[in-house]
Design a protein around this nucleic acid. Structure first.
Lengths: 261, 261
DNA sequence: TAGATTGTTAATCGATTAACAATC
DNA sequence: TAGATTGTTAATCGATTAACAATC
């Protein structure tokens, strides 16, 4: 794009793809969806599927699906479609699900409980290596067939089981501290359910699941629906009317390092 | 962009923004993050904050934050920053959190339990109007201070409480059916925790939270990390070597409507 | 006034999509 | 061969980012 659009010497999509062997993030995020749909087909012993059919099952459009698959390689057959078993294997391998991923869950409250019992983990390559909690009263209690262990054992467990993925289901106040210990112990991927922004060193991946944020996004769209029922642009009007209170308070700048953690 | 880059008559960002009064999806998804950071500042009675400070607390860069806020209006003061209280109010209003949003939770297993007890709902405008489950043995049991009610009452509750948001925490097999009933009863926003693709009519928003998918995305990156430690492009090599078994089975096309649901 | 910080511009980047040549 | 469907192209769209003029 930077070298002009009409010259045939500009980088081709093929060249761009191979640069750094990068599968786009958006594609990676959809691979699990495809895999789920393919697994369902596999269980029904369906041998092949077209991009159109698979896309419908995964809830995307077929052009996007074919583009996504093109990053993995040419695994389809023109005029026929994709072999279900073969594609299940290729996507599993690409996602790293052909190996075993031990995970620890830290914070065995309601949510930790729910996750420990969640069937979706074991069915993929994920294995709950340990359940950890800071509360000594919980230690030793059985949850989902596993004993809750005390936080003191965290480093030991991670080293012994070569755990690289940690799930944080603690209260928000404890999350950063737990995260730091996980990282120091060798964990390089974190799934965070606590409503906190975690800071981690380079090389550590964090993904977050935030129930409250999802609801707020729904509320935004829900509000728009009601607004559309009444006037044309009711929002634009009310913005101007809203009290401008407090705009006069100008005050010195404050660092918010503490507030963030 | 479509009308050429050098002509001054191409649409300005201002024009683009006002077209349809659209706040970009990516911006809407970040507003709850800003709101959370601002709420923490508000509790510490911090009066003003700069884009740089607030961005750090929310985990984004400051240019993005300022761009995001520019879609809401000009709520900052040059040379000073943003008034915390004023911005909390504006974002809350924009997200629709100044009103009450009754929600129902359907499926009171481990996860439904966890959500019913989740503090983050009540603190925003969200109120759990009812907990519903199909199991008669659960009916009447208290969960998070609320009685579990039977699915038979779903339509009645939604109508009576004007519920527009439903949370689905059922097993995957029941999710589409529950979704259909919610929508028929008047719900127009759904937060889906079941690992299923839901189909809904136009005008209904669905957001999904999928624990297993998040873990799979982490596994993908985790795998890449280990790969990078060993050879330069180990992946590219092994792709070619992998057995091409099953590519010969070509078979008739199958509809997969049932598999999807 | 001098210093600070917003709001906006414009360039870049990444993702989506329709269309179709390649090919089974 | 005729019909079907992939893999790829190229256009479009939306999101990110650095830079800086406007302005408190």
């Amino acid at each position: 794009m930077s070298t002009g659009r009409s010259t045939p010497s500009s980088p081709t999509p093929g060249e761009r793809r191979s640069r750094g062997r990068g599968i786009p993030d958006a594609t990676v995020a959809r691979l699990p969806l495809y895999l789920r749909a393919l697994t369902a087909l596999s269980e029904r012993s369906v041998p092949t599927v077209s991009s159109e059919e698979l896309a419908a099952a995964a809830g995307v459009n077929s052009a996007k699906l074919r583009k996504d698959f093109s990053y993995l390689g040419s695994y389809g057959t023109r005029g026929v479609g994709y072999d279900v078993e073969y594609l299940v294997y290729q996507i599993s391998r690409e996602l790293g699900l052909t190996q075993d991923w031990p995970v620890v869950i830290v914070g065995i409250g309601n949510l930790g409980h729910a996750l420990a019992n969640y069937g979706g983990f074991a069915s993929r390559g994920f294995r709950v290596a340990a359940l950890l909690d800071a509360d000594p009263n919980l230690t030793g209690q059985q949850v989902a067939g596993l004993p809750v262990r005390h936080m003191d054992e965290l480093e030991e467990i991670i080293a012994a089981d070569r755990v690289s993925i940690g799930v944080i289901t603690t209260p928000p106040g404890a999350a950063q501290q737990v995260c730091d210990r996980l990282v120091a112990a060798g964990v390089t991927s974190i799934l965070n359910f606590a409503p906190t922004v975690l800071s981690v060193p380079d090389g550590v991946d964090v993904r977050k699941v935030d129930l409250s944020i999802e609801l707020q996004i729904l509320a935004f769209h829900e509000q728009r629906k009601s607004a559309d029922e009444s006037v044309a642009a009711p929002e634009a009007a009310s913005v101007a009317v809203v009290s401008r209170r407090a705009r006069e308070h100008a005050a010195p700048h404050v660092t918010l390092e503490e507030a963030a953690g």
